[in-house]
Design a binder for these strands. Structure first.
Lengths: 211, 211
DNA sequence: ATGCACCCTGACCATTCGGTCAAGAATTTT
DNA sequence: AAAATTCTTGACCGAATGGTCAGGGTGCAT
């Protein structure tokens, strides 16, 4: 009996190994691109034989699909604080903070996402057309409400969102360039805070929100 | 005699063919990434046999290097209007316009550049460390002078530049995502102007420049 | 203890890729 | 005109890649 429930220990072990492979794959896909990444490189990064990786993820595309899907979830959840906030100062400020934090902690994921979209989103086009469109329209409505309430300037909510996405993700996707321009050293804790403050200050003032 | 001067007709023909290959390569590298692009795809796009492409560019890396180098030049020249302007309203406004125009007319080039930097700039790292560092420091000085003259807020010039780069290039690099969010159709002339205006309005107001 | 389902991996395969080459065509120089 | 240089291209090659598979190992239920 109980034919459906697999042993708990085994299930955990399987999941743990999948996570190890997914993390290695995210790193390699970010560094090499989809075409440049090889299953051997991913297997080496995960410290497993290549055939073992293929046991958990049958094809390179299947593995890539799951990496991209994971990042998309993180991306969407970054705006949890958006709607439930009182006004633009708190809502947009927190959203910028959240997205900057993702750039700092998950730069590889951000690069994989950027690469996927840059190449025409061959894998996650359906998500863009459904989830992302809904998500965006919902945020645009929130911003329009703030504008109608006189809490901020009547700017284009859509282009404001693009600016926030672009600027925050730039710190991950172009992290190498930023590091080169920072005496070849990664941003320190203070420098990250300076970046966050700069982005928030300019954008919030730019849309007429007092801080 | 005249052993050094090659025939003009032949030289022109060679240059023309190189340009055809470079344009095809820029498109394919943008669509497929360096690893995903194949010499056969590039040759097909240029409507030439693969061996003929190898006659003009001995290796894939050499071809890629020239594509990236071309884009870097465009990138730098976009700021010609920066220093010779009277103040931030004109200088930064014109710079944003120029960069938005590049995103509109050379999206493939922008993507190749983004891809190169995202993967650690393996080919043009030396340019980043020399030309780009000098270029950036020079612009930072100009902005600091404007701040000292009280023409704009005392924001971080460095992060302002990052924001301009990120936002303007976003319209090329993430053009597919923007198109998906625009009812699956490319931005019209009016929509491009709306985008330009939005970016300039928010950034210029954000740094305390009256327009 | 024994059967069973899941896990592991070295060896292997077909395909594709970047790059070469030789032989001929076209164009310029003498 | 004929020699010399440059251009063109089909055929080919070694290396690398994604994916397969057989055979053995491991841990759980009965």
């Amino acid at each position: 009996m109980n034919p459906n429930a697999a042993p708990v220990r085994k299930q955990n072990k399987r999941r743990e190994k999948e996570v190890v492979i997914l993390q290695a794959a995210e790193k390699i896909f970010a560094e090499e691109g989809f075409g440049g990444a090889t299953m051997q490189l991913i297997a080496d990064a995960a410290q497993l034989p290549k055939a073992n990786v293929h046991y958990y993820f049958s094809t390179k595309e299947e593995l890539y699909r799951q990496v991209v899907s994971n990042i998309f979830d993180v991306w969407l959840q970054a705006a949890g604080s958006f709607e439930e906030s009182d006004g633009p100062a708190e809502g947009i400020g927190a959203y910028i903070d959240a997205k900057m934090e993702i750039s700092r902690t998950r730069p590889a994921g951000s690069k994989v996402w950027a690469s996927e979209v840059m190449h025409g989103a061959p894998i996650i086009q359906d998500y863009l057309e459904t989830t992302l469109v809904e998500w965006t329209n919902s945020r645009i409505q929130a911003i329009e409400a703030w504008i109608a309430a006189g809490l901020m300037d009547p700017i284009s909510p859509r282009h404001l969102l693009y600016m926030i996405w672009a600027t925050t993700q730039h710190y991950a996707d172009f992290g190498h360039q930023i590091q080169t321009l920072n005496h070849n050293s990664p941003l320190s804790e203070d420098e990250w805070n300076r970046a966050k403050d700069s982005v928030k200050t300019i954008i919030l003032k730019g849309i007429g929100v007092a801080t």
